[in-house]
Amino acid sequence: MPVPRLTDARRDLRRTQIIEAAVRCFSRRGLDQTSIADITAESGLSAGSIYAHYRNKADLLQAVARAVLDRHAATLSAYAAESPPPNPDELLARLVTTIDPAYARVGVQTWGAATTDPALREIVTGMVARLRDLLLTCVAAWLSRVGNGDPAEAGPIVERLMVAYQAQLLRAALQDAEPSAPDRGKPDPP
């Protein structure tokens, strides 16, 4: 009896399920300590199912990076299409509210690993360049629509936005996802 093929929609759903499980595992255990077996257990799928979609952990990490960037692309494209688009301060505030701490932890780990892994460095530099381009489109649209701005001035504004956003990602990554029960409600130490 032939094995039924997955539809494109079902395949996309399965990939999303695997990516989300990988993010949870990478966030909790770290990139190096997470195994495909961990992701298999977290996703509830078989190892064969995961390998049917991703060749190895590195391939899966690339898919996670693309998924994060695709979310940013959709968000920024929607912002650029608004009339008028959000100003840079509002744009940064909106982006910060969309930060998922688990994805931030995986992102920061990926940045660190990229300093010694050429394949990850390529992914990270590509992601940063694409995010910069998306922000540039959004800021240039804002500058051209507010009537008093030159879209050519978008570059320096985007560089400041990138630094501020990456700092917020790092901040989110370093925050505990769930403080232990005894620490809840206690003020931060001075």
Score class of each variant (00 low, 15 high):
residue 1 M to V: 11
residue 1 M to Y: 05
residue 3 V to L: 12
residue 4 P to V: 15
residue 4 P to G: 07
residue 9 A to R: 09
residue 10 R to I: 08
residue 10 R to K: 13
residue 13 L to I: 04
residue 13 L to K: 06
residue 14 R to M: 15
residue 14 R to I: 13
residue 15 R to Q: 14
residue 15 R to L: 01
residue 18 I to R: 04
residue 19 I to P: 01
residue 19 I to M: 03
residue 23 V to G: 02
residue 24 R to W: 03
residue 24 R to A: 15
residue 25 C to I: 01
residue 25 C to N: 01
residue 26 F to S: 09
residue 27 S to M: 02
residue 31 L to C: 03
residue 31 L to K: 01
residue 32 D to Q: 13
residue 33 Q to G: 14
residue 35 S to C: 10
residue 35 S to D: 12
residue 35 S to E: 13
residue 36 I to A: 14
residue 37 A to L: 09
residue 37 A to T: 14
residue 38 D to I: 04
residue 39 I to L: 08
residue 40 T to F: 00
residue 40 T to C: 14
residue 41 A to L: 15
residue 41 A to S: 13
residue 41 A to P: 04
residue 42 E to W: 03
residue 43 S to Q: 03
residue 43 S to V: 08
residue 43 S to L: 05
residue 46 S to Y: 05
residue 47 A to M: 11
residue 48 G to T: 13
residue 48 G to S: 15
residue 49 S to K: 06
residue 50 I to R: 03
residue 54 Y to S: 06
residue 56 N to W: 08
residue 57 K to A: 09
residue 58 A to T: 11
residue 58 A to Q: 13
residue 63 A to R: 01
residue 63 A to E: 09
residue 64 V to H: 03
residue 65 A to R: 02
residue 66 R to N: 14
residue 69 L to K: 00
residue 73 A to D: 03
residue 73 A to H: 02
residue 75 T to F: 13
residue 78 A to W: 01
residue 79 Y to S: 05
residue 80 A to R: 02
residue 80 A to E: 01
residue 82 E to V: 01
residue 83 S to A: 15
residue 84 P to M: 11
residue 86 P to F: 07
residue 89 D to Y: 03
residue 90 E to S: 12
residue 91 L to D: 00
residue 91 L to M: 10
residue 93 A to C: 04
residue 96 V to Y: 00
residue 99 I to S: 00
residue 102 A to M: 11
residue 104 A to Q: 00
residue 105 R to V: 09
residue 106 V to K: 01
residue 107 G to L: 05
residue 107 G to T: 14
residue 108 V to C: 11
residue 109 Q to A: 15
residue 110 T to C: 09
residue 110 T to M: 15
residue 112 G to H: 13
residue 116 T to K: 08
residue 116 T to E: 15
residue 119 A to H: 07
residue 127 M to Y: 12
residue 127 M to V: 07
residue 129 A to P: 02
residue 129 A to W: 02
residue 130 R to A: 14
residue 130 R to M: 06
residue 132 R to Y: 10
residue 139 V to I: 11
residue 139 V to S: 12
residue 140 A to K: 07
residue 141 A to D: 14
residue 142 W to S: 07
residue 142 W to L: 08
residue 143 L to M: 09
residue 143 L to S: 05
residue 146 V to I: 12
residue 146 V to S: 15
residue 147 G to L: 10
residue 152 A to W: 03
residue 152 A to T: 10
residue 156 P to N: 10
residue 159 E to S: 07
residue 159 E to G: 02
residue 161 L to A: 08
residue 161 L to P: 09
residue 162 M to W: 01
residue 162 M to P: 02
residue 162 M to E: 14
residue 165 Y to P: 04
residue 167 A to M: 11
residue 169 L to P: 00
residue 171 R to Q: 12
residue 174 L to D: 09
residue 174 L to V: 05
residue 176 D to W: 04
residue 178 E to V: 13
residue 180 S to P: 10
residue 184 R to H: 08
residue 185 G to C: 12
residue 186 K to C: 10
residue 190 P to Y: 09
